[in-house]
Simulated scan of single mutants.
Amino acid sequence: MDAKPLLQQYQQRVEQQLKTVLSLSGDAEKIRQAMQYSLFNGGKRVRPVLVYMANQLLGGKLEQADAAACAIECIHSYSLVHDDLPAMDDDELRRGKPTCHIAFDEATAILAGDGLQALAFELLAADTTLPADICLKMISILARDSGYRGMVGGQSIDLCNEGQQISAGQLELMHRYKTGALISASIELGALSSNHASDNDLQALNDYSRAIGLAFQVKDDILDIESNTETLGKPQGSDLLLEKSTYPALLGMAGAKQKLALLNEQAHTSIDYFKDAAEPLHWLADYIVERQY
């Protein structure tokens, strides 16, 4: 199955939803401009696409997934704005464009990230397409997976271990938090937005998201070495420069690619439970490991 048209449909849908959300003017116009700049800078929208795919897999309505899709992308975009700051990874290029703190200034970038984070929870809290208990559960999941027990915790582990040797287990834990947690949240929020998710559904999707979440990071590690700045849209070799712990550094390039193939196989196996209905998720798993940026 070629799910590329579906991917494009979902990418366009979340783009339009986000434009609507940020179309209202306010007194803090500079911050809104910085938030828009960070949201609409050419991202692949993988996380919102996962929200929509999980929603549709379980028979939901797309409008029930819109708030979650926008919220997850707001959190992801905020994390990139903050990751690029001088105190963190100190990057000047993101997706081929100046990073937010370069395009505006450091203080504005910090506030833009803060604004995007807060907006994510505002969107979920204001959603009227789902029962209140489902919305509350989705807010709780996103808070957990984007906080110190998820993405933020993973970023902290990463920063604390720059220039140090860590074990394969520690590296996997770091990436399951830093990258995997938000991908898992995307799948879980999408499933819950259908209002039809059983425990078995959630378990199968959780296994899938754990596999593709780690695969996404392994592929990023490989691309940082094998790709180039123009293709990546950010400085190639930045992981090596910052002496970050990566799969190629720990396992060698051949070992990293073997790990990637194993994770891809695990992702496919985990959703056999859904039979033909899971074809879009099978396609996306391959897209993650075959992408060039």
Results as ranks from 00 to 15, higher is better:
residue 38 S to K: 00
residue 57 L to S: 06
residue 163 G to K: 14
residue 266 Q to I: 03
residue 62 L to A: 14
residue 88 M to A: 10
residue 211 A to Q: 02
residue 24 L to V: 12
residue 146 S to T: 03
residue 215 A to W: 02
residue 292 Q to T: 15
residue 166 I to N: 04
residue 248 P to H: 06
residue 111 L to N: 08
residue 121 F to W: 07
residue 277 A to E: 13
residue 66 D to I: 07
residue 178 K to W: 01
residue 275 K to S: 13
residue 20 T to C: 04
residue 213 G to P: 01
residue 257 K to I: 06
residue 120 A to R: 00
residue 40 F to G: 03
residue 253 M to R: 10
residue 69 A to I: 09
residue 2 D to P: 06
residue 70 C to L: 08
residue 127 D to C: 10
residue 269 T to N: 13
residue 46 V to L: 15
residue 77 S to P: 07
residue 53 M to L: 15
residue 208 Y to M: 03
residue 18 L to D: 00
residue 134 I to P: 05
residue 68 A to E: 11
residue 170 Q to Y: 04
residue 216 F to Y: 15
residue 159 L to V: 13
residue 91 D to W: 05
residue 91 D to M: 09
residue 74 C to P: 04
residue 259 K to A: 05
residue 7 L to P: 01
residue 196 H to W: 14
residue 1 M to H: 12
residue 29 E to D: 14
residue 180 G to L: 00
residue 50 L to S: 05
residue 42 G to P: 09
residue 224 D to V: 05
residue 213 G to M: 00
residue 173 L to A: 02
residue 144 R to N: 02
residue 242 L to P: 05
residue 288 I to T: 05
residue 57 L to E: 04
residue 157 I to D: 00
residue 169 G to D: 15
residue 287 Y to C: 09
residue 9 Q to W: 06
residue 41 N to S: 12
residue 95 R to L: 15
residue 104 F to K: 09
residue 288 I to K: 01
residue 160 C to H: 14
residue 235 P to Q: 10
residue 113 G to Y: 00
residue 258 Q to A: 14
residue 232 L to I: 12
residue 92 E to P: 07
residue 139 I to L: 13
residue 3 A to Y: 08
residue 276 D to C: 11
residue 291 R to M: 12
residue 188 E to S: 12
residue 142 L to P: 02
residue 123 L to I: 06
residue 56 Q to Y: 07
residue 193 S to F: 02
residue 269 T to K: 08
residue 229 T to R: 10
residue 132 A to W: 08
residue 211 A to N: 03
residue 84 D to H: 04
residue 263 L to W: 02
residue 81 V to I: 15
residue 237 G to S: 10
residue 226 E to K: 13
residue 89 D to E: 14
residue 123 L to V: 10
residue 64 Q to L: 10
residue 58 L to R: 03
residue 102 I to V: 15
residue 223 L to T: 11
residue 151 M to G: 02
residue 252 G to Y: 11
residue 13 R to T: 04
residue 179 T to N: 02
residue 205 L to S: 04
residue 61 K to W: 07
residue 172 E to P: 01
residue 225 I to P: 05
residue 36 Q to C: 01
residue 91 D to S: 11
residue 91 D to A: 13
residue 258 Q to F: 07
residue 270 S to C: 08
residue 161 N to K: 08
residue 58 L to K: 04
residue 195 N to Q: 15
residue 150 G to Q: 01
residue 4 K to F: 13
residue 134 I to D: 06
